[in-house]
């Protein structure tokens, strides 16, 4: 490898330090996340982050960028993304203009070689996120988001970048990284990625956090919320996630819900509050019925509001 990973900075010296650093910029990592982030920096390897939607995969990259003080370069993947959109593209318009203006100025002396050298130079190159990350003077954090949305060919394109941190441009030669970027790839697990890609990455599976940690996260983002309400809220969210719903509530939705409860000045979560604000965490009509039926009834058990009507949960 041409360059060694930058890891001398004291704040990257141990998994605990990385964890504390992430915490300081508003991201609460669990031990594994901190360890893998640390390893990514130490070994200079890309990290493949998988997990359900809304557990903070993208947020991790942003937090790493904030914490290390690096620029975040983001490539959002979608079906059909290709090298012209991800890597580089020649600026055809400018090239064409160059040729035409050259021909008009002095028709006889414009030697073919001069023009050819000219139009395939960096002046006519449009850099896209991947090349940008490689060519950057300053070390960056590169986020390749939702890699599972792309095609197999695109994965192959990434291999050179991920293992050697270089890009080959036929007309220009090889562009090598001068600094070592931290690379994160995220995937929603909607399809199996190729072995070759996985082989080059560290693997991190992010799942919904444990109750205690989620309470911490909610309290960090909504510090004014009462501690008991926060604990209850996380408990309810957990119940909803355990049901077979189409879209389980994500962490950001927990936070949104916490904000709502704070705005409404709710000091406890009873059935009425829950049903009024349920639409923030549940976003499918069929899910809403199910959640109201299963979770709403459980909330009923809290004293003073036993109605007894309503559908019974099918056990």
């Amino acid at each position: 490898m041409a360059i060694s990973p930058a890891s001398d900075t004291p704040e990257l010296s141990s998994p605990e330090a990385v964890g504390a650093g992430l915490h300081s910029v508003g991201y609460l990592p669990d031990e594994t996340t901190a360890l893998v982030s640390y390893l990514a920096v130490q070994l200079g390897k890309p990290v493949l982050v998988e997990g359900p939607a809304g557990v903070g995969k993208t947020e991790l990259a942003k937090a790493l960028a904030r914490f290390t003080g690096r620029e975040l370069i983001r490539l959002q993947c979608y079906e059909g993304v290709d090298e012209a959109k991800a890597l580089y593209e020649w600026n055809y318009k400018k090239q064409l203009l160059r040729i035409q203006s050259g021909a008009a100025a002095d028709a006889d002396s414009a030697s073919w070689d001069a023009v050819q050298d000219n139009i395939f130079s960096e002046e006519f190159l449009l850099t896209r996120p991947l090349l940008q990350a490689i060519a950057s003077e300053e070390p960056v954090v590169l986020l390749i988001d939702e890699i599972d949305k792309t095609d197999h060919e695109f994965e192959a394109l990434l291999l050179e970048i991920l293992s050697d941190f270089q890009v080959s441009i036929p007309e220009l030669g090889v562009v090598e990284a001068t600094t070592h970027p931290i690379v994160l790839l995220t995937s929603n697990d909607s399809r199996e990625l190729t072995e070759a890609l996985k082989r080059r990455c560290l693997y991190l599976w992010l799942d919904y956090p444990e109750n205690a940690r989620e309470i911490e996260i909610v309290r960090m983002h909504v510090p004014d919320l009462d501690e008991k309400v926060a604990a209850r809220l996380v408990e309810v969210i957990r119940m909803v996630r355990e049901l077979d719903v189409k879209k389980p509530p994500s962490i950001s939705e927990s936070i949104d819900w916490a904000r709502t409860l704070l705005l409404l000045g709710a000091d406890r979560i009873d059935r009425k509050t829950f049903e009024d604000t349920m639409s923030i965490i549940v976003k499918h009509r069929t899910d809403m019925d199910l959640v109201a039926e299963r979770v709403g009834v459980k909330l009923d058990k809290s004293p003073a509001s036993i109605t007894g009507s309503g559908p019974r949960p099918a056990v």
């Binding site: 998994p15 031990e31 594994t32 360890l35 893998v36 390893l39 493949l48 998988e50 697990d189 199996e192 996985k198 082989r199 990455c201 560290l202 693997y203 991190l204 599976w205």
Partner: peptide, 15 residues
Amino acid sequence: AAFREAMSTTIAKSQ
């Protein structure tokens, strides 16, 4: 935990 996770993240590449 560190020992296990360090191995896991480099060896086990899917859920």
